[in-house]
């Protein structure tokens, strides 16, 4: 089966300013996203995430290279029947009401008004905007705009959903709602390609990630494979130790920080844990918590960024 997204040697240069100075936004990007995958596209601001997405939906023309969606070139208009797209910090026709807005976009797919009515009602339910149907978009808050934007991306029941920073500008509740919607799309077997610079979001819902830095893809793969399953460290919080005694642990630990009664001891691995527990009891102290620290996406990300800096 052809992948949902296939990007081959995609390069985009912009000419800007009075002298048309060239700048490279994307250089030789190669990427494949399998059908049904939830792909997190990660990178700092200005790395080329949005450019990639705009090239996929055809509002930008590539300088060189090609992109395919479900095996067909992005230059074909017809492929857009199966795509939904939410741009970054969307701004819509603010003179329309919420339902007029969705109705208009549905018409662009040639949907009949009866089918649209049902669909629109369902979408308002899904993005939790019930009651705001007859409100003009100029009265929508930023979070509401993000939600209605998500609804417009889903109006045609797309096979592939491309979301540019879908969680930006949302409060914690809103982020959770968007995460739930993405998970639901995944359950329905849809391919989701979304960008974010908030790594915890990606970690929670993606099964595949790509990291892009300065227009170049640095790391791509399944999340489990990318993250080291080994423990990075174990952090133990201890209290009630006699003053100064904690430094007896120096050879055992990576670092120790003391704050009042409480000390945070960071161990290299689990093996030293039983020894630490015994010692603490002997000294009359008390273990408050033990937290194992695994490698996170953030660590990988920072590593990639560091690689860029050197």
């Amino acid at each position: 089966m052809t992948p949902a997204i296939q990007i081959r040697h995609l390069t985009k240069r912009f000419r800007t300013g009075f002298w048309l100075k060239a700048s490279t936004a994307l250089s030789d990007l190669n990427l494949e996203v399998a059908r049904g995958a939830t792909f997190g596209f990660l990178g700092p601001n200005g790395a080329g995430k949005t450019t990639t997405m705009k090239l996929l939906i055809g509002v930008l023309h590539p300088t060189s290279g090609e992109a395919f969606l479900f095996g067909r070139s992005v230059r074909e208009i017809a492929i857009k029947r199966g795509i939904g797209y939410l741009p970054e910090s969307p701004y819509f026709y603010d003179y329309l009401t919420g339902s007029e807005f969705l109705y208009f976009y549905g018409q662009l797919f040639g949907m009949g008004s009866r089918a649209l009515k049902v669909k629109i009602e369902m979408l308002f339910e899904l993005v939790k905007l019930k009651g705001a149907e007859q409100v003009q978009l100029r009265r929508y808050s930023k979070g509401m705009l993000q939600r209605i934007g998500l609804a417009q991306a889903l109006i045609n029941d797309p096979k592939l959903v491309i979301l540019d920073e879908p969680m930006s500008g949302l409060d914690p509740m809103g982020r959770k709602d968007v995460r739930d919607i993405i998970l639901r799309l995944k359950e329905e077997g849809k391919t989701v390609f979304f960008s974010t610079h908030v790594l915890s979001d990606a970690e929670m819902i993606c099964d595949q990630v790509g990291i892009i830095v300065k227009g170049q893809l640095r790391n791509v793969g399944r999340l489990e494979e990318m993250l080291n399953p080994k423990l990075k460290s174990v952090e133990v919080s201890v209290r009630g130790l006699p003053e100064g005694r904690v430094h007896a642990l120096d050879p055992l630990s990576k670092s120790i920080t003391t704050k009042g009664e409480e000390s945070l001891i960071s161990l290299q691995d689990e093996e030293a844990l039983p020894q630490l527990i015994q010692w603490t009891e002997r000294e009359g102290g008390k273990i408050v918590s033990i937290v194992p620290r695994r490698e996170t996406l953030e660590d990988i990300f920072i590593e990639e960024m560091r690689g860029e800096a050197t």
Binding site: K54, I57, G58, V59, I77, A78, K80, R81, I83, G84, Y85, L86, P87, P90, Y91, F92, Y93, Y105, L108, F109, G149, Q152, A153, N156, I162
Partner: peptide
């Protein structure tokens, strides 16, 4: 300017 064209051209619209 208002970036409405992105969503519009992402639809099957020439």
């Amino acid at each position: 300017e208002k970036r409405t064209i992105y969503t519009l051209l992402a639809k099957p619209v020439h």
